Simulated assay, not measured.
Amino acid sequence: MKRIGLFLLTNIAVIAVAMLAMNILGVGNYMEGTSLNLNNLFMFALIFGFAGSFVSLAMSKWMAKMSTGAKVIETPRNADEKWLVDTVAAQAAKAGIKTPEVAIYDSPEPNAFATGMTKNNSLVAVSTGLMRNMRQNEVEAVLGHEVAHVANGDMVTMALLQGVLNTFVIFFAKIVAYIVDRVILKNEESGHSLTFIVVDIVAQILFGILASIIAMKFSRYREFHADNGGAYLAGKENMIAALRRLQTMQPGELPDQMAAFGISAKKSSFGDLFKSHPDLEDRIARLEATTQEQLKVA
């Protein structure tokens, strides 16, 4: 129920921001009678495409805390919490970024994630299951992987990519709907017909699938770089050990907004093209073939 509420709240915020931007920029109706105004349509698609990705990015830390129940460690209550905060602080300093907020969330399954709007306003969270089931050097490597995500600016980069993809999905879906409705079926009614709406929805679904393939391919590429950064911050052997440990575990499920930034993910039901993470075997092999001189962050 909480996730449904957060989903609705996010979408209300997206619509509000998009409508405000359209009013400020003076973007008119893209459908003028029976004609399609491509300039207005592109601006409409651009605003709604980027509004969704950047509202989600702006709300990401708050959404992460609400959806997972992650509790930020303000004052460490025990040695483990102090070690977590100190380790992330040391890694952040080495990566040249401001120390992220450090949080723990209650889950028996091992996972961790990073989120936040900028490199210097971020959150790194680990599950209780990860803390219980991994050795300290392995947890250190997982933290390094997440800090590397932050230092590499992956959250902003993914938001930009998703905004571009959203823009073209909306733009081309409506063009296809217009062609089917006005050119093929020769509908001369003013405004949006039922045919236009139905074709628009179907086209957005199909183009959205193609966009997801592109986004997931980039996500997998980004994971290799985060592993590289984690090896730089916590040691190559520790990073490999952490990935090998994950091979023996079932990763915890994360909300959609954070799933791409987790240390690992469950296998996609739709095949390799839709995986946010490369196979652990491939990640280990890539690290093993990387020299010490090639290890870096950003």
Rank of each mutant, 00 (worst) to 15 (best):
A103C: 02
T75D: 09
V142N: 01
P251R: 01
L161K: 08
N78V: 12
F168P: 07
R3D: 14
M19Y: 13
N133D: 15
L165Y: 06
V202P: 03
L41Y: 07
M239R: 00
W83S: 11
T291C: 02
R132Y: 09
G28Y: 06
F168L: 15
A159L: 05
D181G: 04
N11H: 07
L123S: 09
S268I: 07
H149M: 09
A112H: 05
L243P: 02
A211S: 14
A265R: 04
A173D: 06
F274I: 13
V72W: 09
D200R: 01
T248S: 05
F207M: 11
M31T: 09
T157I: 08
L243F: 06
A112P: 01
A51N: 06
M216F: 15
G252L: 03
S35Y: 11
G208K: 00
E223L: 05
N111T: 11
G69S: 07
D227H: 03
I205F: 13
K296C: 05
V139P: 01
I73T: 05
S190G: 01
S190T: 12
V176C: 00
V147W: 04
A298E: 12
E140K: 08
M66H: 06
P278V: 07
R182V: 08
N37G: 05
F42M: 12
F42S: 04
I97L: 03
M258W: 02
V164T: 13
L280R: 02
H277R: 03
S107I: 03
M155H: 09
M258F: 15
D200F: 00
A18R: 03
M19P: 08
F7K: 00
L130E: 01
R77E: 15
N152E: 13
N121P: 03
S35E: 15
I170K: 00
F196Q: 03
K2H: 02
S67R: 03
T157L: 06
A103N: 07
Q294W: 04
P76E: 12
T99M: 12
G252C: 07
A58M: 10
H149V: 11
D227V: 05
S269Q: 11
G208D: 10
S56P: 00
T34V: 13
G28Q: 10
G28W: 08
G49Y: 05
G208S: 12
L38A: 07
A226Q: 04
P108S: 10
R135K: 15
G52N: 14
L143P: 03
S67E: 15
F261A: 14
E293Y: 00
W62V: 09
V176F: 07
K267R: 11
V14N: 07
A177Y: 03
N238W: 08
L210W: 03
Q292S: 11
E101F: 00
S56T: 13
Q250V: 13
T157A: 01
K71I: 15
R222M: 13
M1D: 14
V198C: 04
E74D: 15
N228Q: 15
V72D: 13
I201F: 11
D272M: 02
Y105T: 07
L84A: 06
S269W: 14
S60I: 10
V88M: 04
L130W: 03
A92F: 10
E32Q: 15
G116I: 09
L20H: 05
Y30I: 10
N39V: 14
S269V: 13
K119G: 12
N40F: 10
I284N: 04
I179G: 00
S53L: 07
K267Y: 01
I201R: 01
L6N: 07
